[in-house]
Simulated scan of single mutants.
Amino acid sequence: MFIRNYREADIDSIVDLFYGTVHAVNKRDYSREQLDAWASANDLEERRESWRASLSRNIAFVAEKEERIVGFTDMNRQGYLDRLFVHKDYQGQGIASALISVLESEARKSNLPEITTNASITAKPFFESKGYRVVRSQIVERKGVELVNYKMIKELNPQ
């Protein structure tokens, strides 16, 4: 596996990975209606445009295996981890751990005191295993559909 900086040319692979992962991996914790509200096939083009802009502004990395993008993550300059997704066919191979390690290293270099995120029910155990703690559970609304997630935080020790 190889981790590199995000490039705009990655956007199609990233959006497709996100859609496929949400619908395959998160289905154990969310209903079909919730999954469709979170990651709708009708929103792919709009998502490509909005994510192209935000990923270019943020600190963003992709993981590649055999020249295929198998994961990605990004964080804004204030330490909000926006996205961390691993391809549905590459779960459990340490890809998310490697990505979050690189992201946390960048946060420390930027002297950020903490990283925050909004983790899905599915992702919560992963983040807890990496030292993040739940601040609160919350209900977010997507297209009129409610989904539960967790505001989480990890305080970073200065190096």
Rank of each mutant, 00 (worst) to 15 (best):
M1K: 09
F2I: 15
Y6E: 04
R7H: 14
A9I: 11
I11L: 09
I11N: 08
D12R: 04
I14W: 02
I14F: 03
V15E: 01
L17T: 05
L17A: 06
F18E: 04
Y19V: 06
Y19P: 01
T21W: 00
A24M: 04
V25L: 08
K27R: 15
R28S: 14
D29K: 01
D29A: 07
D29W: 01
Y30I: 01
Y30T: 01
R32N: 13
D36P: 01
A37P: 04
A37I: 04
W38Q: 04
A39Q: 05
A41H: 04
D43E: 15
D43C: 03
D43P: 07
L44Q: 13
E46A: 14
E46D: 13
R47D: 12
R48E: 04
S50I: 11
A53P: 00
S56G: 12
R57T: 08
N58H: 15
F61W: 11
V62F: 06
K65A: 10
E67F: 06
V70L: 02
G71E: 09
G71F: 06
M75G: 11
N76V: 09
R77P: 00
R77G: 00
Q78C: 02
Q78A: 14
G79Q: 07
Y80L: 12
R83L: 15
L84V: 11
H87K: 08
K88E: 15
D89A: 12
D89W: 07
Q93P: 00
I95K: 03
A96H: 10
A96C: 11
S97N: 13
L99V: 07
L99G: 03
S101R: 14
S101F: 10
V102C: 10
V102E: 13
L103Q: 03
E104A: 12
S105N: 15
K109S: 12
K109N: 13
N111T: 07
N111S: 12
L112S: 05
L112A: 08
L112E: 09
E114H: 14
T116I: 04
T116V: 03
N118P: 00
N118M: 14
A119C: 09
A119Q: 12
S120Q: 06
I121R: 13
I121K: 13
T122E: 10
T122G: 08
T122C: 05
P125R: 11
P125C: 10
F126W: 08
F126Q: 10
F127E: 10
E128I: 10
G131D: 06
Y132K: 07
Y132S: 04
R133C: 06
V134F: 06
V135H: 03
S137V: 01
S137A: 11
I139C: 04
I139P: 00
I139E: 14
K143M: 09
K143A: 13
V145P: 07
V148D: 08
N149Y: 11
Y150N: 08
Y150I: 10
K151F: 09
I153Y: 00
K154S: 10
K154Q: 09
E155M: 12
N157K: 14
P158Y: 12
Q159I: 13
